[in-house]
């Protein structure tokens, strides 16, 4: 589904190489996790895949369902089925959460040549999904993420994901700042979306989230590369011993 080959990325503004040859293949229906110490390039990978400005791909490629995505605009990547749950969801004063959701859903439908969702249907679906994530009418009415707590922001990301029904979901540290209850809501939300035709890339710092969202494959990223790949047991190993051994091995 997602194929990344030998991806090298540097910052546009300065001469700093951040990704130094990432290879990664995510199959439909699978959950891959990426773990790794701070600064190893995990968020950069997620941003480059979703098309944020400021990065330059110097080598390598990335395809989603066979389509080269690195040439596409962010909105085209979204319409192609890519979704990033942000590590730091952005606050947008003045834009209502509901307006935002409906605009996004319909923009993607339009881009794919599908019919737009009627406002009644949209309302019905959004209320249903919001309820599962314990997102109240108030949060739907408020401006996007403005005044939301950390946990509310993350739940709002999952709501967007549920509404947009992407093919490939990237979750960047969705567990950070969540208490136990919010963690459960978020992971239930993610697990509900697991499907044979959908892939997941779950970026996390802690094994904790992986107790709830069981990964099929675990990768360790360090200094811009994937230095180790294994099964769920790799996450447990990291939890117990930290990254020191792995880092030493790869150095």
């Amino acid at each position: 589904m997602l194929e990344i080959k030998n991806l090298h990325v540097k910052l546009e503004e300065e001469d700093k190489q951040i990704l130094k040859g990432v290879d990664l293949t995510i199959e439909a229906g699978k959950v891959h996790a990426i773990m790794g110490p701070n600064g190893s390039g995990k968020s950069t990978l997620s941003y480059v895949l979703s098309g944020r400005n400021g990065y330059e791909v110097t080598e390598g490629e990335a395809t989603l369902l066979g389509q080269d995505i690195l040439e596409l605009d962010p909105e085209e990547r979204a319409a192609a089925g890519l979704f990033l749950a942000f590590q730091y969801p952005v606050e947008i004063p003045g834009v209502g959460n509901m307006t935002f959701l409906r605009t996004a859903v319909n923009a993607q439908r339009k881009a794919r040549g599908e019919e737009e969702m009627s406002s009644t249907e949209f309302l019905k679906v959004v209320r249903e999904k919001a309820k599962e994530l314990e997102i109240g009418a108030d949060m739907l009415k408020r401006p996007v993420n403005v005044g939301f707590s950390g946990g509310e922001k993350k739940r709002n990301e999952i709501l967007q994901m549920a509404m947009l029904e992407p093919k490939l979901c990237i979750l960047d540290e969705t567990d950070s700042g969540l208490d136990v209850d919010a963690m459960k809501l978020v992971s239930d939300g993610v697990n509900k979306l697991r499907a044979p035709d959908r892939g997941f890339l779950v970026i996390t710092h802690y094994q904790r989230l992986l107790d709830h969202i069981t990964p099929d494959v675990v990768h360790i990223m360090y200094d811009g590369r994937i230095v180790k790949t294994g099964g769920p047991e790799l996450a447990l190993e990291v939890e117990k011993n930290g990254y020191a051994d792995i880092m030493a091995e790869s150095a």
Binding site: S50, G51, R52, N53, D73, P74, E75, R77, A78, A79, F83, L84, F86, P89, V90, E91, I92, P93, G94, V95, T99, F100, T103, A104, V105, A107, Q108, A111, P143, V144, Q160, L164
Partner: peptide
Amino acid sequence: DEEALFYLRSRGVPQGHAEDLLTLAFLAE
């Protein structure tokens, strides 16, 4: 706001439309 613009675009809202939403939001007060 570039951050907000990217956020909207990453959800599939085309750039021009996203800019308009942010402009309306700016005038809202």
